[in-house]
């Protein structure tokens, strides 16, 4: 007030109060606006994109190589042959991509909370959960997706499945549901970040357990192991259960045969549950001291 006006401040446009009318913005639109921006940034840095995608391919590929060598020597694992295990592997990896491509940014939660960036999300008129998912885009997820699709196409030929329209629909739905299961579990783990400050190892552990032990028929883990990997860590719902339906192997399940289709329902439920857990725990957010 006591200072001389700066250049332009005397301009005529500045003289009337600025109170524009604001439209309602739907959460979905807000999410897409942010996601599109993240994608644009990622595609602006091509070398990083390629580099990180390659890293993901290598990581998932090493597991593929391992399973390949194993089957090369032993011909079958838990009664499943090469084509069957290949299909299971491919379904798991595609489901993983369904989780990581749109929802992979749950992994940023520790960083967001500890660096105080979560404050910034709370200052915007958009759900912080959606903002987290669109925070950045991990190009590694494109590596998961491309390897997953390639392996799926190959495995679909190798697997002893007659690909009727129904089977293809089941395959697609099962992969989507499997991705939702994985995302839901990771959301639930992310929700712990609001209390624990660091859930990174927990999430990596669950992620690698899914990746490394996903390609086996559940039977190899024994009764206790199978039940644990169904009801404690819902690995079975990601790919194994629907795979038994596709491969006509539901008789080996410890559960009734219809359970093979249950993942189609369990997927959305786990996803919703994980989201609710996140929202619920986010009330405990204590912004770090400035």
């Amino acid at each position: 007030m006591a200072e001389p006006p700066a250049d332009g401040a005397a301009g005529t446009a500045a003289r009337e109060p600025w109170r524009p009318q604001l439209r309602e913005v739907s959460p979905l639109r807000a999410w897409w606006v942010l996601m599109a921006t993240s994608l644009r940034v990622v595609f602006a840095y091509r070398s990083n994109l390629l580099n990180t995608a390659l890293g993901s391919v290598a990581l998932q590929g090493s597991q593929l190589l391992f399973v390949g060598v194993l089957l090369h020597r032993f011909e079958q694992v838990g009664g499943w042959g090469f084509g069957e295990v290949a299909l299971l592997f491919a379904m798991r990896l595609c489901a993983h991509a369904v989780c990581t491509v749109p929802f992979g940014q749950h992994s940023a939660i520790d960083f967001l909370i500890n660096e105080g960036d979560y404050d910034r999300l709370l200052l915007r008129p958009v759900s912080p959960f959606l903002q987290m998912l669109a925070w950045r885009f991990n190009p590694g997820s494109l590596g998961d997706l491309s390897l997953g699709v390639v392996v799926l196409v190959v495995a679909a030929r190798l697997a002893p499945v007659e690909w009727t329209a129904g089977a293809v629909v089941l395959l697609v739905l099962a992969i989507l549901a499997g991705g939702l299961v994985e995302a839901g579990v990771q959301f639930a783990l992310s929700s712990l970040s609001f209390r624990l400050r660091a859930t990174w190892s927990l999430k990596v552990t669950v992620d690698t357990t899914f990746a490394d032990f996903g390609p086996y028929p559940l039977g190899v883990f024994g009764t206790v192991g199978s039940l644990a990997l169904t009801f404690v860590l819902p690995l079975a719902f990601i790919a194994y259960l629907p795979a038994t339906a596709l491969l006509g192997r539901t008789d080996e399940l410890l559960l009734p045969a219809w359970a093979a289709y249950s993942s189609l329902l369990v997927g959305p439920l786990v996803f919703w549950g994980g989201y609710r857990a996140f929202v619920h725990q986010s009330r405990h957010y204590d912004s770090p001291a400035g």
Partner: peptide
């Protein structure tokens, strides 16, 4: 681009956004 994002997230119409951008560009140089 940051401004454009803000405008979209807060539901500012395009003409309003252009007006605001002009105004603040002028005011804050």
């Amino acid at each position: 681009d940051s401004f454009e994002l803000v405008a979209k997230l807060y539901g500012l119409d395009q003409p309003d956004y252009q007006r605001a951008l002009g105004r603040f560009t002028e005011l804050l140089d």
